[in-house]
């Protein structure tokens, strides 16, 4: 039963972060919200009994993708919010 509650909480967090990523004005907050989606998705994978996928998603989706986006935004300074 606690797993069901954790699952519902994670689903609400990820959907809320997705809607926030669409509506927010600044690009960097949208990027952090997409990182939150990946992190909660990785815990969902762990609850769905797929630990390999959870490991990959936590390192790639929440770690490297955010850094790659940040490096790209460093090169387009001045144009990322229009």
């Amino acid at each position: 039963m606690p797993e069901i509650f954790a699952l519902i909480l994670l689903i609400v967090i990820s959907l809320g972060a997705a809607v926030y990523a669409v509506f927010t004005k600044k690009t960097i907050t949208a990027l952090i919200a997409s990182g939150i989606i990946s992190l909660s998705a990785s815990i969902i994978y762990l609850l769905m009994a797929a630990p390999d996928v959870a490991m990959t998603e936590a390192t790639i989706g929440a770690g490297l993708t955010t850094v790659v986006f940040l490096y790209a935004m460093k090169h387009v300074k001045g144009g990322e919010d229009d």
């Binding site: 997705a18 690009t27 949208a30 993708t65 986006f69």
Partner: peptide, 16 residues
């Protein structure tokens, strides 16, 4: 969205 970076963020949400 009109900004290209925001379009790519949308693509990453679709991926997840």
């Amino acid at each position: 969205k009109k900004n290209i970076i925001r379009i790519i963020i949308g693509f990453s949400i679709l991926d997840t």
